[in-house]
Nucleic acid binder design. Structure first.
Lengths: 252, 252
DNA sequence: AAAACGACTTGATCAACATCAAGAATTTCT
DNA sequence: AGAAATTCTTGATGTTGATCAAGTCGTTTT
């Protein structure tokens, strides 16, 4: 039920140097020698199943984690039982960066499907980065990138309409799937409508209606989790917020 | 017109070891020796005036900056002329972390009043942190903290009502002023209503109305930029989102 | 001091999206 | 396979906060 497999689950013994995700991940920009040294501290456990927690808010922080297959939702459980979905993470993406601050996870991470991860013990990573300038640089870059992504999300939630939010969401997945060698226009979403709505600051019903409307406007075809983007350029127009997108469509 | 001064503008020659902000800033947790070494790479220029840019989106990235007095607004100028305010920064706070990613500022920073900063050339900081584990650790912590703050902001914009947003905003300033040795309940805001609204994802008019309403409910007194918080506990109740706050007030 | 400008406030109206409610389609459980 | 529980969709209604409009107050300019 995974959208598509990047690394099959049996590759538990895979090393960074053989990993197709290396260019997206921590080893990016490192020399083969350095990758080898980094590889030594990485732990690869058995996969998580749908609904398993990788960690929970409040847990002591030990390791950063890179998704190698499957997908993960991070969320912060807020006082009144509800939750705020913070992100959906695909293979090659690093999670747990927010926990460095005080050695404690501030949010929770849960597998949305069968999911494998690499665990990188942070204290060892820190030691290694102290003697490996390229790794230190890569860490600074990744942390900085995370900040940049969060601020983009702030603009999305602060200023964009429901329509713009969903289009941005879909194109984000499109781009990320493409980066990973999959179709940019035909993919499966592993999260529910409810989770999409929560992430985008919208009600489930609004998300559902928007999917229907986008389909009516021939922007995409959708059937449950399966999404086919039919007019990516017009989706980008919508993201821009200019309503030129509207004028160029002719309802069928 | 500054809210209050932390370090007078003349302290251009101040060193980290004498700086009252050291416990909030990069030197936090460093030994006096390490602080000394860090101090060597820091540049302290003449103050910026209201409206001066510290940097603009697109500028090449050279230095992180710590506010030492005054205040700064960061914002990302978006395509259609508008802007998204990303944050308001007080003395001791580090800005520019988002630019590490690709050596280029993604957002702009502008002084809201007369403002002094320490400049920390990043390449030198990076080199130093490679030979100073405690500094490296502090950098990781600060970057992680920034991520944590951004995700809090995501929850604010994704789930909270206008009332909750403004209460959170005010208490954030209250806490930060207190941390810096000033009154938690009596301060000046250096930004306009328009900027507050932009930051919180609200229209100016909504912000203005909320100030009026909070004042009517004896939560605070406000006159232009001058704010006096009269009932901080009830403001915290509002932040929580439980409407117990409403029931405990009796309109006069 | 008068005039012009910008920031803030207040009121009236409107629209986008949430909420409530019910039904259809899927998945899970037994 | 059949029942129960979810998830998703669709419609009707309601509310929050945006937008539009006008006026007040403060500040800067001349």
């Amino acid at each position: 039920m995974t959208s598509r497999k990047v690394v099959s689950f049996e590759n538990i013994k895979v090393a960074c140097k053989n990993c197709s995700l290396a260019t997206l991940c921590l080893p990016m920009g490192l020399t083969p020698d350095d990758v080898e040294r980094l590889d030594c501290i990485i732990k690869r456990g058995r996969p998580y199943h749908r609904g398993d927690h990788l960690y929970r808010g409040g847990d002591k922080f030990h390791s950063l984690r890179v998704i190698t297959s499957g997908s993960v939702k991070t969320y912060s459980p807020n006082e009144d039982g509800g939750e705020q979905v913070l992100g959906f993470h695909l293979p090659g993406e690093l999670i747990g960066l927010d926990a460095i601050q005080d050695d404690c996870h501030t949010c929770s991470a849960i597998a949305l499907e069968t999911t494998a991860v690499c665990e990188i013990p942070f204290s060892q990573l820190e030691s290694l980065s102290a003697i490996m300038p390229s790794l230190q640089h890569q860490m600074y870059r990744l942390l900085s990138r995370e900040i940049g992504q969060d601020t983009e999300m702030l603009t999305l939630l602060g200023k964009k309409s429901a329509e713009e939010r969903l289009a941005t969401f879909l194109l984000s997945f499109s781009e990320r799937f493409k980066q990973r060698g999959f179709s940019a226009s035909d993919f499966f979403l592993s999260m529910s409508r409810h989770e999409i709505g929560n992430y985008l600051g919208l009600a489930v019903e609004t998300v559902s209606r928007l999917f229907t409307r986008f389909q009516d406007e021939n922007l995409l075809r959708v059937e449950r989790k399966h999404v086919q983007l039919l007019d990516i350029p017009r989706l980008y127009d919508i993201v821009q917020g200019c309503d030129s997108a509207k004028s160029s469509q002719s309802r069928g």
